[in-house]
Design a binder for these strands. Structure first.
Lengths: 229, 229
DNA sequence: CGCAAGGTTGAACCGCGTCAAGAAGTGTGG
DNA sequence: CCACACTTCTTGACGCGGTTCAACCTTGCG
């Protein structure tokens, strides 16, 4: 058994986790652990693809720009998530950006090596393919929501999915502190509108707000706002 | 060389095309050619997954419902496209519906057999994975467009992508006759609004309309409407 | 203490979805 | 071949949801 793994936490690494033990030593030769501070950019839309990242700890937002001052947050990547996997395929250019929203530790794997791993390790490839299928499913649901769901529903949906992904802290608040700007970008709306919606939800006792923390009181009612599907 | 292939057009079949020749006979045992008339449903959102479809000829829309009277068309599947591949993954339920918009001939492959093929044929699996990566890229771009692009831009985008996918007929019109309702659902808007936008574009000499046919005159100006990215 | 950055609120504007109603096609049966 | 019903097209008016702008009010920080 090869020891330190350069700090790699096997359970959280899609690559390590889906390959035979004999490969791990080789993998470690091609891995690189990286840290990012809050706000730091991991990679940017339009950049040539260099590799793929596995999140060990912290959180990153995956986002896409519109013009100079608008963005849409596609998803958040936390423990165990993969970043930059859309760099596969033909174009070899990142289609999205990734930025740390909480201090982030990732494992970087060179794209060439990752591609080679996929081609030789069919189980890894299959798992990744299934992951893609699931992400596509989510993505298409979101498209429909964006097209037809009013803002209040989108905010509700955003809060629910954040709680589902990050759980709650000891106070019952969603265990991710997000700037209101990010929340707006995630709900595909504007700062002011999201502010007003959250205020509404507070008055209706559906959510509780303390500073930047948001907690969900009435999941039932929140979910009702997302109906129509 | 095994002959008829039950009518399978190898060049257009992702499965046949990405597997070794020795497999083809086996594949043919698990294949089934099916025809659908315009308007017929291939599969529906929420149905359990039975298999995967390869389009030989004709066109289908892939769409998702919102409430009872609204839908969003995610994409169109034509020659060589795959339908129902999102049925992979864990849920085993179609997340979208597929409906023929032009008389359709498809090849149906049982999901169990397809999964087995993917697991034994790593090249096939890799190709599908790359296909997913590309679809995800498109899907995420569309999400951003839905969030930030005004209707006129989305119609422009819709027309450009339709022309790119289907080419033009002898008269220079987009080689797919689409009901205005479908066009609206594709541009994620309403019948009336799309009507007005198309009228605008006609007045500006950017597009030409004859009956249901739509032709693009000025790709430059259309593309300009989609800018902001 | 003062300035900057973000939070809070009001008001105006406007894109576009909705409704309604008439015109123009399309089909069907007598 | 016409009468009738029915769908699709076309256009106008209206109003709501949500973005935008701008002002004022906090809070943190050097």
């Amino acid at each position: 058994m090869n020891k330190p793994q350069k700090g790699c936490n096997l359970e959280k690494c899609f690559l390590c986790n889906n390959t035979v033990p004999e490969w791990r030593e080789t993998i470690n030769l091609h891995k690189q652990n990286l840290k990012f501070k809050k706000g730091e950019v991991i990679f940017s839309e339009g950049q040539p693809v260099t590799g793929i990242y596995f999140v060990y700890s912290g959180t990153a937002k995956v986002h896409k720009k519109w013009g100079d001052d608008k963005e849409l947050i596609i998803r958040f990547a936390a423990d165990g998530s993969i970043l930059g996997h859309r760099g596969l395929g033909s174009k070899m250019v990142y289609g999205v950006s990734a930025t740390a929203v909480e201090p982030l530790v990732v494992c970087f794997v060179d794209i060439k090596f990752f591609e080679a791993s996929l081609k030789t390790n069919s189980d890894l490839c299959y798992k990744l393919m299934v992951l893609f299928a699931e992400e596509l499913d989510v993505s298409e649901r979101k498209m429909r929501d964006l097209a037809h769901m009013p803002v209040k529903g989108r905010v509700a949906q955003a809060l629910l999915s954040l709680e589902e992904q990050f759980g709650q802290d000891t106070g019952g608040y969603i265990n991710l502190t997000l700037s209101r700007h990010d929340l707006a970008a995630f709900a595909a709306s504007t700062y002011e509108t999201v502010f007003r919606v959250i205020m509404d939800l507070t008055k209706e006792n559906i959510v509780v707000v303390t500073g930047k923390q948001i907690g969900i009181n009435d999941r039932q009612k929140l979910a009702a706002l997302t109906m129509g599907a």
